[in-house]
Measured scan of single mutants.
Amino acid sequence: MAEQVALSRTQVCGILREELFQGDAFHQSDTHIFIIMGASGDLAKKKIYPTIWWLFRDGLLPENTFIVGYARSRLTVADIRKQSEPFFKATPEEKLKLEDFFARNSYVAGQYDDAASYQRLNSHMNALHLGSQANRLFYLALPPTVYEAVTKNIHESCMSQIGWNRIIVEKPFGRDLQSSDRLSNHISSLFREDQIYRIDHYLGKEMVQNLMVLRFANRIFGPIWNRDNIACVILTFKEPFGTEGRGGYFDEFGIIRDVMQNHLLQMLCLVAMEKPASTNSDDVRDEKVKVLKCISEVQANNVVLGQYVGNPDGEGEATKGYLDDPTVPRGSTTATFAAVVLYVENERWDGVPFILRCGKALNERKAEVRLQFHDVAGDIFHQQCKRNELVIRVQPNEAVYTKMMTKKPGMFFNPEESELDLTYGNRYKNVKLPDAYERLILDVFCGSQMHFVRSDELREAWRIFTPLLHQIELEKPKPIPYIYGSRGPTEADELMKRVGFQYEGTYKWVNP
């Protein structure tokens, strides 16, 4: 592979701008107003304001973009700056750019259920340069409990009458099928589907988006991507930290609602779906819905739930269990780990287990898709061969690698495990991989909904998990304890083995 010439960040961002501006969906010269509902909250200060700053800094926003914060707290732009700027990672050389960014910011205080507050917000936006005809993007960085009041008031008082209007809704989209349907029906009564952007930030990850290209742009994968060759698929999300004093919020939802029903299920769809007619948003989402419709409700015998306990040999936070978090209700049975087996009941995947695993306070930070292939028929190497695996590593250190057998150097035919490896950090030294939120917010500006969740996708996802969630809430089974920093409950490994996964433990990928 030829040595790549190092590029400056300015040059890299210039390439990104060229890609972005050559499309006809990006209205570079139009006025846009980006409204952050819930501007005083954690999500706004840690993710949304920093993301908008990065896009502005790199010249990736339309030229005439204004940012308006809205929340109940009586704040000023200076207050917003004070709480969000520490997350910007701005350099001293960017000081003038930073001043320009905050000059485009404003803030309006108001209630979430008060019509007069929204009329005041609308008047404020109209007073901005060309504000009355601007395109408006409303980001709901809010708890779902206020979605209905907020969307109703936005629709009645704050819509642009000339430009387009788009609304970005953060997960969780309800707690179960019934609450999700209620919320979807409410929002759909106010906005068209092409105006609604239900954001799952995992769909903005580079390697998640790469799944489609790997599958449908490489001839070698087509013939082997089926039940005849693939023994099982494992989708993993692991965090090495616990709730760390923020367990009160987590306890309301648990690990299945927080990660599995959305992030992991979306990745499953991209692995299992048929080739779409095109890369058009609805063509892709149509195929994802077909996959979900082929999955039956989760069966309790295919589920393992766990909850982390303190590690007596650990240090600091590792010595504390979930129930030691003062914000967690006493005696909570909320799971911090889950392993679930699903089956896609169609011709391509009949009988292939899709194993979804996620948890907190585990032994490493990792998100990946792992396809394990069947054993080689007619073994001539005296059971020395391990199964081939194709691994798409989402985070950290984005990579695609194939675990395969090669001859060990020497005189004899002794096979050993090795890999074919594409590590993004080595291959793409001159490429700026956008943060997931950067990519998705740019998608909203461009009107691309491919990486957002459609209402029928959402409904099918909740259909699969709601009976299990209701059973857990009714019966309150005690989750299996696992030690902070471990791989999780051993019962999860036993479940995976029972459905056909072979864990060798003899080879570990190392970032080159």
Score class of each variant (00 low, 15 high):
Ala2Ile: 12
Glu3Trp: 06
Glu3Leu: 03
Glu3Thr: 07
Gln4Val: 07
Val5Phe: 12
Leu7Ile: 12
Ser8Glu: 04
Arg9Val: 09
Arg9Gln: 11
Arg9Lys: 06
Thr10Pro: 05
Thr10His: 07
Val12Ala: 03
Val12Leu: 09
Cys13Ile: 07
Cys13Thr: 11
Glu19Pro: 07
Glu19Tyr: 07
Glu19Ser: 10
Leu20Tyr: 06
Phe21His: 14
Gln22Val: 13
Gly23Cys: 15
Asp24Glu: 12
Asp24Phe: 15
Ala25Met: 10
Phe26Glu: 06
Phe26Gly: 07
His27Thr: 15
His27Ser: 15
His27Gln: 13
His27Arg: 12
His27Asn: 10
Gln28Pro: 14
Gln28Lys: 06
Gln28Val: 14
Ser29Leu: 12
Ser29Phe: 13
Thr31Tyr: 07
His32Cys: 11
His32Ser: 05
His32Leu: 13
His32Gly: 03
Ile33Cys: 07
Ile33Val: 07
Phe34Gln: 02
Phe34Cys: 13
Phe34Ser: 02
Ile35Asp: 01
Ile35Trp: 01
Ile36Phe: 02
Ile36Pro: 00
Met37Cys: 15
Met37Ile: 12
Gly38Asp: 08
Gly38Met: 01
Ala39Asp: 02
Ala39Tyr: 00
Ser40Asp: 07
Gly41Arg: 11
Ala44Met: 02
Lys47Glu: 10
Lys47Val: 14
Lys47Tyr: 14
Lys47Cys: 11
Ile48Asp: 00
Tyr49Thr: 00
Tyr49Ser: 00
Tyr49Cys: 00
Tyr49Asp: 00
Pro50Val: 01
Thr51Ser: 03
Ile52Asp: 02
Ile52His: 02
Trp53Asn: 00
Trp53Thr: 00
Trp54Asp: 10
Trp54Arg: 09
Phe56Arg: 01
Gly59Met: 03
Gly59Phe: 02
Gly59Arg: 05
Gly59Ala: 03
Gly59Pro: 00
Leu61Pro: 01
Leu61Met: 03
Pro62Glu: 03
Pro62Gly: 05
Glu63His: 14
Asn64Trp: 03
Asn64Lys: 09
Asn64Gln: 08
Thr65Ala: 08
Thr65Ile: 15
Phe66Lys: 10
Phe66Cys: 07
Phe66Ser: 05
Ile67Ser: 00
Ile67Glu: 00
Val68Ala: 01
Gly69Asn: 05
Arg72Pro: 13
Ser73Lys: 05
Ser73Trp: 04
Arg74Glu: 10
Leu75Tyr: 10
Leu75Ser: 07
Thr76Gly: 05
Val77Ile: 13
Ala78Cys: 08
Ala78Val: 04
Asp79Tyr: 04
Asp79Thr: 05
Ile80Gly: 02
Ile80Asp: 00
Arg81Gly: 02
Arg81Asp: 01
Lys82His: 13
Gln83Tyr: 12
Ser84Tyr: 10
Glu85Arg: 03
Pro86Asp: 08
Pro86Gly: 07
Pro86Ser: 05
Phe87Gln: 03
Phe88Ile: 09
Phe88His: 02
Thr91Gly: 09
Thr91His: 10
Pro92Lys: 10
Pro92Asn: 09
Pro92Met: 08
Pro92Ala: 11
Pro92His: 11
Pro92Thr: 10
Glu93Ser: 08
Glu93Asn: 12
Glu94Val: 05
Lys95Glu: 09
Lys95Asp: 07
Lys97Glu: 04
Lys97Pro: 04
Phe101Leu: 00
Phe102Val: 02
Ala103Asn: 11
Ala103Arg: 08
Arg104Thr: 03
Arg104Asp: 01
Arg104Gly: 01
Arg104Tyr: 03
Asn105Arg: 00
Asn105Thr: 12
Asn105Ala: 08
Ser106Cys: 05
Ser106His: 10
Tyr107Asn: 02
Val108Met: 08
Ala109Cys: 10
Ala109Trp: 06
Gln111Ser: 08
Gln111His: 09
Tyr112Glu: 07
Asp113Ile: 02
Asp113Gly: 11
Asp113Tyr: 07
Asp113Glu: 08
Asp114Ser: 08
Ala115Asn: 11
Ala115Cys: 11
Ala116Leu: 12
Gln119Leu: 06
Leu121Val: 03
Ser123Thr: 13
His124Leu: 09
His124Gln: 11
Met125Ile: 06
Met125Gln: 00
Asn126Ile: 06
Ala127Ile: 09
Ala127Met: 07
Ala127Asp: 09
Leu128Tyr: 08
Gly131Phe: 03
Gly131Glu: 06
Gly131Tyr: 05
Ser132His: 13
Ala134Tyr: 03
Ala134Arg: 10
Asn135Pro: 03
Leu137Val: 15
Phe138Ile: 02
Phe138Leu: 01
Leu140Asn: 04
Leu140Gln: 00
Leu140His: 02
Leu142His: 11
Leu142Ile: 08
Leu142Cys: 11
Pro143Asn: 10
Pro144Val: 14
Val146Ile: 09
Val146Gln: 11
Tyr147Leu: 15
Tyr147Ile: 13
Glu148Ser: 07
Ala149His: 09
Val150Met: 08
Thr151Asn: 10
Thr151Val: 09
Thr151Ile: 08
Thr151Ser: 08
Lys152Trp: 11
Lys152Thr: 09
Asn153Phe: 06
His155Ser: 11
Glu156His: 09
Glu156Arg: 07
Glu156Asp: 12
Glu156Trp: 07
Ser157Tyr: 08
Cys158Met: 05
Cys158Gln: 02
Cys158Phe: 03
Met159Phe: 11
Ser160Ala: 08
Gln161Leu: 11
Gln161Met: 07
Gln161Asp: 08
Asn165Lys: 01
Arg166Cys: 01
Ile168Met: 08
Val169Cys: 14
Glu170Leu: 03
Lys171Asn: 07
Lys171Ser: 11
Pro172Thr: 05
Phe173Ile: 05
Gly174Asn: 05
Gly174Gln: 04
Asp176Asn: 09
Leu177Asn: 09
Gln178His: 12
Gln178Gly: 07
Asp181Gly: 10
Asp181Met: 05
Asn185Gln: 07
His186Ala: 08
His186Pro: 11
Ile187Ala: 11
Ile187Ser: 06
Ser188Asn: 06
Ser188Phe: 06
Ser188Glu: 12
Ser188Tyr: 05
Phe191Leu: 05
Arg192Ser: 07
Arg192Tyr: 08
Asp194Ile: 05
Asp194Ala: 05
Ile196Met: 02
Ile196Lys: 00
Tyr197Glu: 00
Arg198His: 06
Arg198Ile: 04
Tyr202Met: 15
Leu203Val: 15
Leu203His: 15
Gly204Ala: 14
Lys205His: 14
Glu206Phe: 07
Glu206Leu: 05
Met207Arg: 03
Val208His: 13
Gln209Thr: 12
Gln209Lys: 11
Gln209Ala: 10
Asn210Val: 04
Asn210Glu: 15
Asn210Ala: 03
Asn210Arg: 12
Leu211Cys: 09
Leu211Ser: 02
Met212Gln: 04
Met212Val: 04
Leu214Glu: 02
Leu214Val: 15
Phe216Cys: 03
Phe216Arg: 03
Ala217Lys: 03
Ala217Ile: 00
Asn218Leu: 00
Arg219Asn: 13
Arg219Ala: 15
Ile220Tyr: 13
Ile220Trp: 15
Phe221Ile: 14
Gly222Thr: 06
Gly222Phe: 07
Pro223Lys: 15
Ile224Arg: 01
Ile224Asp: 04
Trp225Cys: 01
Asn226Asp: 08
Asn226Thr: 08
Arg227Ser: 09
Arg227Asp: 01
Arg227Ala: 11
Asp228Glu: 14
Asp228Met: 08
Asn229Gln: 12
Ile230Ala: 02
Ile230Met: 04
Ile230Gln: 00
Cys232Gln: 13
Val233Thr: 01
Ile234Leu: 10
Ile234Glu: 15
Leu235Val: 07
Thr236His: 04
Thr236Ala: 04
Thr236Phe: 01
Phe237Ile: 11
Glu239His: 06
Glu239Tyr: 04
Glu239Asp: 12
Phe241Pro: 07
Gly242Lys: 04
Thr243Pro: 12
Glu244His: 14
Gly245Arg: 09
Arg246Asp: 13
Gly247Phe: 10
Gly247Arg: 08
Tyr249Met: 12
Tyr249Leu: 14
Phe250Val: 05
Asp251Cys: 03
Asp251Ser: 07
Phe253Pro: 13
Phe253Arg: 13
Phe253Lys: 14
Gly254Lys: 02
Ile255Leu: 06
Arg257Glu: 07
Arg257Ile: 10
